[in-house]
C-alpha cells in the first residue's frame, strides 16, 4: 500500500522538483544547446504556467463532473429514461470528435485566450463523466435495487445510499479520464492563446528553440502523470470503500 501510494505520488514530487530546479538550469540548457541565445523560457514563470494550466483543468473538470453527473442521473431516472438513448448517443458520438476539433470550434465563438479552451475542455470533459455515470448506474445489480425498494428506501435515498456508492468506481474512472484528456487538450490550448504549459512547446516549435520544447514537455508530462496518479489513488480508494 505504502509503496503503491509512493508510486502514484512520485510524478507530483518530480513536478515540484522540476519547478524548483528549472529556473536555475540556464547553464545546463546553455551547455546542451549552445547555439541558442535564450535557452531558458522566460516570458512567463513556469510556476505561473503550471498553476494556470492546473486551474484550467480543475475548473473544466469540475464543470464536467457537475454537468455529467446531473445528466447521467437524470437519464437513468424513471422520468428521464426515454432520454437515455439520446444521452448515450451524445456521449459515444461526441467522443469520436477529436479534442482538437472541439477546441478549434470554440475559437470562432469566443475568440482567442483561455475562454475557448475552458469551453472546449468542459464540453469535451462532460462526455467521459456522462458515459461512465450512465454505465456505472446501469450496472448496479437489480438485486440491490430490489432490496433497497423492499426495505422502503425512497427514490432519492436509494440513489444516494445505494446507486451512487455502487457506481462510484466507474464514475471516478470517468472523472480521471476527463481530467487526463483535459491536461492534454489544455496544452494544445496554448495554440489559441491560453497561457498553459503548452506555450513553451508551441513557441519552441515556431521559433526552432528545442530547449523551450523540452522544458514545456517535461513539465506537462509530469503534470499529466501527477493528475493521473492522484486521481488513480482516489479511484482505487473509492472502489475499495465507496463513500
Amino acid at each position: 500500500m505504502g509503496c503503491r501510494r509512493l508510486r502514484a505520488l512520485a510524478p507530483l514530487l518530480i513536478l515540484i522538483a522540476l519547478l524548483v530546479a528549472l529556473p536555475h538550469a540556464g547553464g545546463l540548457f546553455h551547455a546542451w544547446f549552445p547555439e541558442l541565445s535564450h535557452p531558458l523560457y522566460w516570458r512567463t514563470s513556469f510556476v505561473e504556467l503550471t498553476l494556470a494550466h492546473a486551474a484550467l483543468v480543475g475548473i473544466a473538470t469540475l464543470i464536467a463532473v457537475i454537468v455529467g453527473l446531473a445528466l447521467g442521473i437524470l437519464a437513468t431516472r424513471e422520468a428521464g429514461r426515454s432520454l437515455l438513448p439520446t444521452v448515450r448517443a451524445v456521449a459515444v458520438i461526441g467522443q469520436t470528435f477529436p479534442p482538437v476539433a472541439v477546441l478549434a470550434i470554440a475559437v470562432p465563438l469566443l475568440g482567442f485566450g483561455a475562454a475557448p479552451t475552458l469551453l472546449a475542455l468542459s464540453l469535451y470533459g462532460v462526455l467521459p463523466v456522462l458515459g461512465q455515470t450512465v454505465a456505472g448506474l446501469d450496472q448496479v445489480p437489480a438485486s440491490a435495487l430490489h432490496a433497497a425498494d423492499g426495505m422502503g428506501y425512497g427514490r432519492w435515498r436509494r440513489l444516494w445510499e445505494v446507486e451512487l456508492p455502487l457506481a462510484a468506481g466507474p464514475i471516478m474512472a470517468g472523472v480521471r479520464l476527463s481530467a487526463i484528456v483535459s491536461v492534454g487538450t489544455a496544452t494544445i490550448g496554448s495554440a489559441v492563446g491560453a497561457a498553459t504549459l503548452g506555450a513553451p512547446i508551441v513557441e519552441g516549435l515556431v521559433g526552432n528553440n528545442t530547449a523551450y520544447v523540452v522544458q514545456g514537455a517535461l513539465l506537462v508530462g509530469a503534470l499529466a502523470l501527477s493528475v493521473d496518479g492522484l486521481l488513480g489513488l482516489a479511484e482505487k480508494r473509492i472502489r475499495r470503500h465507496p463513500l
Binding site: 491536461v183 496544452t187 494544445i188 503548452g198 512547446i201 520544447v213 514545456g216 508530462g221 499529466a224 502523470l225
Partner: peptide, 17 residues
Amino acid sequence: AFLQTIPSLALFALLIG
C-alpha cells in the same frame, strides 16, 4: 498506459530531438 497519459503535443515535441 503511462505513455498514453503524456499529452500528445509534449510527446510529439519531445521526439523532434
